[in-house]
């Protein structure tokens, strides 16, 4: 049930994200991630305003500030100071409790959004002539068919090494070389059935959505890899994964984009807070 729901939500998120994130393909990475960070920051701020108990948050924040000021104003008696500290802790705990509802409300859309953004920023597509490892993982009850897995012929990629089979882990690997730019599908054959995986090949570091993995039906996997439909439960193939290269950048790089987006969204929300009159 949850799996079906998540598959449907991923479909919806992909449909919405496709036109919305289209400009990412045309813009410099720093610009697109900055714009997305700012817009999402403000959107989440507004969402927070309407999903939280603003008056209670304001009152709690005021009490916290009052206790902080009290610590400075009434320093002569340690018991008074410790009482203020206690009140401060209670206030902080109360603030945490008041954040639960908006957190729960925002959790699903934020997860979906981050998964969509990861398609663009987490790795970069292969360049023509560049090699990557493709791994096919079989279901545990079909490990005996490991030797039967074959990579189908493709004009977009050429197998340079492999297949290398690792029975202990139930995987078969190839090293493939990208031949043509564009979005392609790599096909794999097992006992006559064909299983495919999307392959992204770009020219000169161009931006395109890149799905690292066609997942199985685990919820976590579904959440993290929303672009391709998961394999069915009856499928002998569990997942197919391509190890794309990392993108190097201070803003939109594989190792930095999430932090950068986090900072930009925080800054945008903080700047927009007085405009929208939001208490946080």
């Amino acid at each position: 049930m949850l799996t079906q729901l998540l598959i449907a939500l991923n479909g919806l998120a992909s449909a919405v994200a496709k036109p919305l994130l289209m400009p990412v393909a045309w813009c410099p990475g720093w610009l697109s991630i900055t714009a997305i960070g700012a817009v999402t920051g403000i959107a989440m701020l507004v969402a927070f305003k309407y999903t939280s108990n603003q008056s209670a948050i304001r009152a709690t924040r005021d009490r916290i500030k009052a206790n902080l000021l009290a610590l400075a104003l009434f320093r002569d008696d340690i018991r008074v100071g410790l009482r203020c500290q206690g009140a401060l802790l209670l206030g902080a705990a109360n603030l945490l409790i008041l954040s639960i509802v908006p957190m729960l409300v925002m959790f699903p859309p934020m997860c979906l959004l981050l998964a969509q953004l990861a398609l663009w920023y987490q790795v970069r597509p292969l360049a023509v002539g560049e090699q990557a490892v493709v791994t096919v993982r079989l279901a545990e009850d079909r490990l005996d068919r490991l030797s039967a897995v074959q990579m189908g012929p493709s004009s977009s990629a050429l197998s340079r090494v492999g297949p290398i089979r690792v029975p202990a882990q139930g995987i078969v690997c190839w090293s493939v070389e990208a031949r043509e730019p564009g979005l392609h599908r790599l096909a794999f054959d097992l006992d006559g059935a064909v299983f495919s995986k999307e392959l992204s090949v770009a020219v000169g570091g161009a931006w395109m959505p890149t799905s690292m993995k066609r997942p199985d039906r685990g919820l976590f996997e579904l959440l993290l890899h929303p672009r391709e439909r998961p394999f069915t439960e009856a499928s002998p193939v569990r997942s197919i994964e391509i190890e794309y290269p990392e993108r190097s950048s201070w803003t939109a790089g594989s190792r930095t984009w999430l932090v950068y987006w986090f900072v930009i969204s925080l800054a945008a929300a903080f700047a927009a807070r007085p405009v929208f009159g939001v208490h946080m």
């Binding site: 916290i64 401060l88 603030l95 945490l96 908006p102 959790f107 969204s265 925080l266 946080m280």
Partner: peptide, 24 residues
Amino acid sequence: YIGPGAGFALAGSFIAVIGAILSA
């Protein structure tokens, strides 16, 4: 971190808790 609002609130309360403990 699920949005700046909740993020701030969460971070704010953690900072307040840690600050209160250190201050105490």
